[in-house]
Design a protein around this nucleic acid. Structure first.
Ligand code: SF4
Ligand code: SF4
Lengths: 142, 142
DNA sequence: ATTCCGTTGCTCGTGTGATAACCACGTTGT
DNA sequence: ACAACGTGGTTATCACACGAGCAACGGAAT
């Protein structure tokens, strides 16, 4: 019951990209340096983000990565699901075949409610908002 | 990001015990039969519940398991934490040494909020309530 | 002696976190 | 054109931890 390091790094990466000037192409090694991820691992992490249409990439000299869409249209849930697949707290929540008790089980309903609440929080703030709040946090700490 | 089978079975077990007449001692094999768990695995699962003071056990002839306290005082979070330890969605949420960014990171706050919401749901209903709702669900489906 | 639970150790498979080798593509200098 | 170089892309592999489950033996109660 904990998010993977891949998801954590993916979020850091997207937030970092969103902090750059719009359409600025960022080198992999710059992401690595600033976000404390190794290049090899970041390579792996970026692919799902690209496939999910969150990040796009450019090969060759002057290549690198940049956001594929406006950060205000990206949520933490998008990044999470790109890395870990559909969010589910228990198997019975997605596959109705998973447990024959699900039509009367009251625990099922509680997991469902918990999951809904969680998804709501993860979609509540987009990346633009998170960047704004981070900047504000830094300003206040000075 | 999914609860373990151990937690799932532990919850089933506690709910089952709560459905029995008060202070009725239940055999391990009866729990297994009704809740679809193997005895060997259930043995392992029950120990944390006993250590957490949720279930108590009786050895010897006529022995078995029963709830150690009133089901109205047991929440799903209690059972979860007995099996999986402290609930945390990301490492930075419990250990403040885990990430040096935590004093300004806005994502940290979001995880915190998501976790709080989840904990609130898992403590909202006690086992007595869950048993009542399950009985009601069964009645309505007939 | 019997019938229970408790403890311990083990297996086996899968997932996580990470590395590296090699491939494919774009850019640039000639 | 084209070759060299600088990027990211793909794939295979690794060590390790964890999840899920099994079994053997030990210990308490009756
Ligand atoms: S018993 Fe309830 S909570 Fe558990 S898997 Fe079945 S439906 Fe889901
Ligand atoms: S970057 Fe933020 S969310 Fe990620 S571990 Fe650090 S404090 Fe937590």
């Amino acid at each position: 019951m904990v998010i993977t390091r891949a998801t954590e790094y993916a979020i850091r990466t997207v937030v970092f990209l969103a902090q750059q000037p719009k359409d600025e192409i960022v080198l992999k090694k710059d992401i690595c340096r600033t976000q404390d991820v190794t290049p090899a691992f970041l390579t792996k992490i970026l692919q799902p983000l690209i496939k999910a249409g969150i990040v796009s990439s450019q090969r060759g000299v002057g290549g690198g990565f940049l956001l594929a869409k406006d950060p205000s249209e990206i949520t933490l849930l998008d990044i999470f699901q790109a890395e870990e697949g559909q969010l589910k707290l228990n198997y019975c929540l997605l596959d109705s075949e998973a447990c024959h008790r699900d039509n009367y089980c009251s625990v099922h309903e509680v997991w469902h409610e918990a999951q809904d609440k969680m998804i709501r929080v993860l979609t509540k703030y987009n990346i633009t908002e998170l960047v704004r709040r981070e900047k504000e946090n830094l300003k206040n700490s000075n």
